[in-house]
Design a protein around this nucleic acid. Structure first.
Lengths: 249, 249
DNA sequence: CCAAAAGTGTTAAAACTACACCCATGA
DNA sequence: TCATGGGTGTAGTTTTAACACTTTTGG
């Protein structure tokens, strides 16, 4: 596992007793897959979580984490369940990305998957490539390993969505710890958008939205002047959104 | 049917022989649903296509058109198939909206549906509420009848998507005939965005994008000065998009 | 000749972009 | 005292928003 707790392996959690079910018409199988992004502040780069497959097809290759949707379980709930199993974290930002249903995307049979993307912040958690027993690891999104199934496409779509959405929805904060210096926020935007931003203009713009609360804390353990830490005022954002405000970087 | 040809009814097109299929684990059923929008230039208002249900559950109520995804058929292909069956039109703009998978959304069993939204233009086709045998009809999106299943939610989400997307993707043209006067385009934007736009500013902005080709035709049968007709230069738009251009109204 | 919509420029305000230096801190 | 990033303002340019009249056409 990537984080401290020891959740069960994900791809094996189909729970119901193996009692056959019969339908008049053939049905595709239904799964969820997860594109879990994290931002590495120190690199800085965007990472994606991948799982090394223990079974065929694509045994030994890397793939997005995911699993079957149980009957009677909401699709989004299935995604959240898988996400918690993989990361051990609750309250993670999660949204549906899209559904991938080409009949040949899984060589075994027709498997339709509902892809989601999630944003986590790494806090104090160590991030390293290729960690432990479960063979989950973080990879740079710009240079991932060969991926199983149509996961390259899904990853690409997720990245496109993130890049577009981050400009007009305050998603960036989901990738940072609750309190962060402005430099981290700028660095995140620069990484996601793939271009440099002017420091003064960036600070001016983000501060005059009046959505960041200045805390009385400052950075620790930095070898230079410590920056003030800010937190995002989500409640205020929600209120302003209802009144027609548009976040726009 | 809404249009001239006579396609088969949609909800009955599950084709394979009724030969039972058995799986180790229960599977949700998988369907596609369609939110088909059209713009009525003369009203002007946005319309959505609905079907009156002939069977339970929700018999006699209105619902979004849709049907089952066949095994071996891509999900998006299923949506397009249903769309063609309903409208008789090919080459319609179609995109995936999202997947709705709450276990109780269909009272019979767990049915997961992949919703799509489509944009058609009504050309010379007559538009009227409650037409013919198949009981398909256009309704104003702002005041639809009571809808079956979770279709109110889906319709609402589709509308939200359209309103947001129309601002930065040239979707509007899909709702107009190939050649249209600027007034129709403006009227469409005003309807979708729900606010009035300044005529001079609108024309200035849209024309200086240089994506509209002035044709040598003018409106016919209008009781006032006839306006020039324009067409959208999709090829140029595609080229410009690749070079980093962003449509933005 | 009337009604209805087409078509057309200018100006003021706001937003955006580019740009450089001093300050605080820890090593 | 040096290296590192924190923090700050202004001026030129571009973009947006507000606004009214003349022209054309059919009835």
């Amino acid at each position: 596992m990537l984080f401290k707790h020891n959740a069960k392996q994900a791809r094996q959690t189909n729970p119901a007793p193996a009692m056959p079910h019969t339908y008049d018409y053939a049905r595709p199988a239904l799964t969820v897959d997860l594109v879990v992004f994290a931002f590495d502040d120190t690199d800085p780069e965007l990472k994606v979580m991948l799982i090394e497959r223990g079974l065929n097809p694509f045994k030994g290759q890397w793939a997005l984490p995911g699993g079957f949707v149980h009957v009677g379980e909401a699709v989004d709930a299935a995604a959240r369940r898988e996400l918690e199993e993989e990361t051990g974290l609750k309250k993670i930002y999660l949204e549906q990305l899209g559904t991938y249903g080409a009949p040949d995307r899984d060589p075994r049979e027709h498997v339709v998957t509902v892809a989601h993307f999630a944003l986590v912040n790494l806090h104090g958690h160590t991030v390293q490539a290729s960690t432990d027993a479960a063979n989950a690891a973080w990879f740079p999104v710009v240079d991932p390993p060969t991926l199983a199934f149509d996961h390259p496409q899904i990853l690409d779509d997720a990245l496109t969505r993130l890049r577009n959405k981050v400009r007009y929805v305050p998603l960036g904060f989901e990738l940072l710890p609750p309190r962060f210096p402005l430099r981290s926020l700028q660095s995140l935007y620069e990484t996601v958008l793939g271009k440099e931003l002017d420091k003064r203009n960036f600070r001016k713009k983000i501060l005059q939205m009046d959505l960041l609360i200045e805390t009385n804390q400052i950075e620790k353990d930095v070898a230079h002047r410590a920056a003030k830490l800010y937190k995002f005022d989500k409640k205020k954002y929600d209120r302003m959104t209802k009144k027609g405000f548009n976040f726009e970087l």
